[in-house]
Every structure is written in structure tokens, then in C-alpha cells.
Design a protein around this nucleic acid. Sequence first.
DNA 1: GTAAAAAGTTAAGCATACTTAACTTAATAA
DNA 2: TTATTAAGTTAAGTATGCTTAACTTTTTAC
Lengths: 219, 219
Amino acid sequence: MSTISKENYLKAIFLHNRIGENASTSKVANKLSVSNAAISDMAKKLSQEGLISYEKYRGMELTAEGEKIALRVLRRHRLWESFLIKALGMSWNEVHDEAERLEHHSSDSLIDKIDEYLSFPDFDPHGEPIPKKNGTFPKIPKSISLSEVQVGNTYQIIRVNDQNTELMNYLTKNNLLLNSKLEVVDKLSFDNSVVVKVDNKKNSLSEKISKSIFVKILK
Amino acid sequence: MSTISKENYLKAIFLHNRIGENASTSKVANKLSVSNAAISDMAKKLSQEGLISYEKYRGMELTAEGEKIALRVLRRHRLWESFLIKALGMSWNEVHDEAERLEHHSSDSLIDKIDEYLSFPDFDPHGEPIPKKNGTFPKIPKSISLSEVQVGNTYQIIRVNDQNTELMNYLTKNNLLLNSKLEVVDKLSFDNSVVVKVDNKKNSLSEKISKSIFVKILK
DNA sequence: GTAAAAAGTTAAGCATACTTAACTTAATAA
DNA sequence: TTATTAAGTTAAGTATGCTTAACTTTTTAC
Ligand SMILES: [Mn+2]
Ligand SMILES: [Mn+2]
Ligand SMILES: [Mn+2]
Ligand SMILES: [Mn+2]
């Protein structure tokens, strides 16, 4: 049986697999703020239920069925985020935590109504693709992270990593919003920081921050 | 600490106390679909935490602090119901079960935004009063249940008991909606059923149904 | 190639919220 | 008033999902 915890585990594994990373015990533990031991425990259960494939010491990977559940949760999460912003005027930095809970407590019928309200969007307000009802996943436009840009070029933000509220607050405060345009002024190989100009204001971004911002180049 | 279960228990106790009934073990057990033993267990904990006063074999009553939590949950429940109907066009017979879960998983800020979206309503779509943010409770207009009406008079529905989805479906199908007008055609003392005319269609309502519908007389 | 560090697992235990079965208290009906 | 029934409580046990501590495996640095 799928529970709230299991949904969160499956989603976390999915998001790790997705960016090419191996879903290792400690990475998932860190994301979910539980001990490594809790992950080992759960890995056994999920594996037993056929939702992940798991080999001791070798990380976790979703099975087709596990991925189906993960996508369903992700869909709910991103639709809720979109809806809270559109219908209630919440800001993009406060909806993630809310959606983290609501994603586990809404009926299919409610989610479909939200989807319809939003005219079946392909992307959420952070630029993330919203899994479709039929299980497909909208194509993600090609992007690079801000840590890979070249000095002198101009880029547009098309996706940000919304997992951390503090980061989202920072981005909001500094006008680093979805679709914002920015010019890369400088890159320091010393600490891999990037200096960008947004709205004619310069801003130095640490490596960790720049890796959470995805852009496309503007000609 | 308050948990989902505790919130549900406190709300159930509140709703029983509210209609004058003693919140007895088996009544609350029945409402929450758990065993009597579970109620006895929880009663001890809630009492320990100062949320209810409880004397063995004598039922439960909320303390001031317990009532505060119950009202907070009730507020969330009824605001969610109102919002789902208003914003997403859900029908009044499908929102209760949804709200039963959402009431435990929304931040204060989200609830306040829903409240504002709805222009701070006093009553929900079933005619139930919505507790205010400050803890007050809108005055409930005087009403009698359909089981107490007099033959020949005309009444208007101002509140219904929404706890049971099957009942709600029935009411919807028979046009027994909020603000519907009805004429009382007959009452059978044999089974305490009531015959009413709505939209020129006659309808016989069992005692149990008539006790879930609250009306005011129309001159 | 080995030793130290990092990552992962296992074992034991805990809290919550239930269950069923056995028992106790209260209500009721003759 | 007493005995039967209904209601409520207690005790023992279960499932879930965590924790910490001890141990094992893998990775890394030299
Ligand atoms: Mn999110
Ligand atoms: Mn979640
Ligand atoms: Mn309701
Ligand atoms: Mn509830």
C-alpha cells in the first residue's frame, strides 16, 4: 500500500534519478530529512513491493510502477503550486511547502478540476514540467545552469529549483524570476561564482545558487 | 502535541457537544469509524493534555483550549468546502470528504487567503457557520429541523447536515438545496416521515433525512 | 595495497494510533 | 431488586515510520 511517506520517498528518488544522479541512501536521506537508517529500512519495503529496484550499497532506482506513483505525486505537487499562485495570488516562494503536503491529500477528481482551471498547463511557475494525467511528461526545453554560462552573453531564466524556501526568497528579492533576462558580467574560477546584471543591478551568485537557476541563451 | 487524529477527535467532540448531545464514547467512535477502545485510549491522552475533561463512563467535553483547536479545524474545513465550490465549481456533495483531509494540511496563511478570496464569509455552502479567525462563531439563525414542521406551512432550507455523502447526493438529486422552498404536504406519525412539495414535485422524506434538514418558516 | 574516512546497513527501541478479547460498570426491563 | 443487555475500559498486540548505536562495506588518499 502507498502511504504519504512512501509517496515522498518515491518522488525523491525520481527527482534524483531524473538529474542523472544515483539515488543514494544519504542523498535521499538528506532530501527527506531523515536518518540513513530510515532509508535503508524503507528501501527494503519499496523493493519488496516492486516499486524500486535496490541492491544493498548500490542506491535505488524506480521500477515502472514506482515511477508511475512518483509522477502522480509530482503532478499533484506542481498543479497545486500553479493553482495556489493563480487562484489565490500566493507567491512562488511560499507554495512549495504547501504543495509538499497537499500533494498527498487530494482526490483525482480535485486534481483534474485544478488542471482544468489552469487550462492543462505544461509547466509550473518554477518552469518545471507537469506530468500529464495519462502519465506522459512534457518535453523540457533545453537549458543550462547558470554555472555553465559564458561571460558577455545574455540569458533568460526558464527554470529554477524551488526545493528551498530560503533560496526562493533570495531569488524573489533579487528579481531573479521566471523569464527574467540577465547579462553575465563575470565568472570567478576562484569560487565558481557568477556575476550577473539584472534590471541594471549587479549581483554575485555563489556556485550553489547558480546551479539552481536554469537559463537559455538569448540572441 | 496536536496531530491529525487529535484534530479529528476534538472536532467530533465539538460537534456532539454543540447539538446538546453528550459526546459519549460510542457516538464519537461511530462518527470516526474506530473502535470504542480507541476512543477510551485517546480520551485519556486528550484529557492529560488538558484538551478535554473526561470522567470514565461519563463522556467527554472540550476545555477552552480544546475548543480553540476544534474551532480552528472547523474553520479550515468549512472554508475549504466553500472555496472548492466557488473556485473550482465542485458540487456541495463532493467537498466534505475532500475538506476532511485538507483541513489538516494547510498553513494559516493559506487559510487566510482562502478566507479573503471568499470575502470572509459567515456561512458555508451547507449553511453552517464558519468560525472566524479571532475564534468567534457567527450567530446561527434560528431554525427548526424538517421533522418539527407543521403541515400546510411553507419553509426555506437554511442548513443541511453534510456529514454523509449519500445523503448529500440524495438531496441534490431531489432539489433539496440551500435556500430551496418547500411546502409541507403531510406528516405520518406512523414512521415520522414528512411529505414535502418542492418545485411542484412531491417527496416523502424519512425521519432520519428530515432531521438533517433545517428550515425557517416563510410567511 | 593498505589504512582511514565515508557511506550504508542492521538491530533494538520508541511513539502513535489503531485492533480484538476479556473484563467492568451502567442502564434497563421484568 | 435483580439479572440481562448495552456501553465503556483495560490489556495485549500490531503496523508504520522513525531514532540511535553498533557494525559492515565501499571509497579515497597516500
Ligand atoms: Mn515544488
Ligand atoms: Mn510531500
Ligand atoms: Mn463538511
Ligand atoms: Mn478530518
